[in-house]
Design a protein around this nucleic acid. Sequence first.
DNA 1: GCGCTATAGTTGAGGACGCAAGGAATAGTA
DNA 2: TACTATTCCTTGCGTCCTCAACTATAGCGC
Lengths: 133, 133
Amino acid sequence: MRAMNARLVAEHGLTINGYEALLHLARAEGARMRRVDLAERLILTASGVTRLLDGLERAGLVDRAACDSDRRVTYAVLTPAGRTKLEEASESHIADVRAFFEEHFSKKELDQLAGLLGRLPGVAAAVGEDCAA
Amino acid sequence: MRAMNARLVAEHGLTINGYEALLHLARAEGARMRRVDLAERLILTASGVTRLLDGLERAGLVDRAACDSDRRVTYAVLTPAGRTKLEEASESHIADVRAFFEEHFSKKELDQLAGLLGRLPGVAAAVGEDCAA
DNA sequence: GCGCTATAGTTGAGGACGCAAGGAATAGTA
DNA sequence: TACTATTCCTTGCGTCCTCAACTATAGCGC
């Protein structure tokens, strides 16, 4: 359970939130999101996102871009390196998540769960779907 | 969502893990648990539990007791003050949790969810039940 | 234009927790 | 009994994240 997280860090240098940030960016229009919106998705505060993106930027996985219409906002943009990293990390991570759930639930139950939990705020339509990248 | 956690801290000085620690102790035989078992329940490492209980002890909510048969283990024991605190905190916290779920799911769906998620490791039979204290 | 309030983002201080390492007691084996 | 392995717990150090305070921009009413 927490082991999944540890593996992400050990093998890819990504925390779970780092991973999910890349994932949300990859799915977003133009692979970019306002930091505020990213915060809401990740259930993090604004400052949490600032520091999370600091790290991802330093690693070259994410870049920042200004907004023409509103000079307050800074976009977080997925870099090609970020996309590659996400694809690499997804491979093992999705397998881990899938294994965890299949260990506890039947296929039918998983569909039920996906339908139910998918309605919760911040939960992307990721459950049961091969998602990302 | 994170607000529930914040309320617990603001109104009762309890983190979510502190709250759940008290809850598990209250439900345990003799209101006591080995630290190791508590760690597993809370999905925390041993060191995490040490520090969590440090705080609860300092607040007088939990006490420590030696084990006669194995001098390695230290029990965490719920104090009367701890039980009182749990009862106080439960009142608003359970209402918050219930409100959150009822906002998103019907009664029937909640039963489904409770049945499904209750099978996950570390999830007590708390969903849908008036639980604790 | 001038205030007022709201929103986006950053920064400093502190808390919670993991990992790694180590101490102490117990269990297993010869 | 001596030797090693295992289990329970704690401590040092670093990371992630929150809260509170602050800056900068935007939008509204006048």
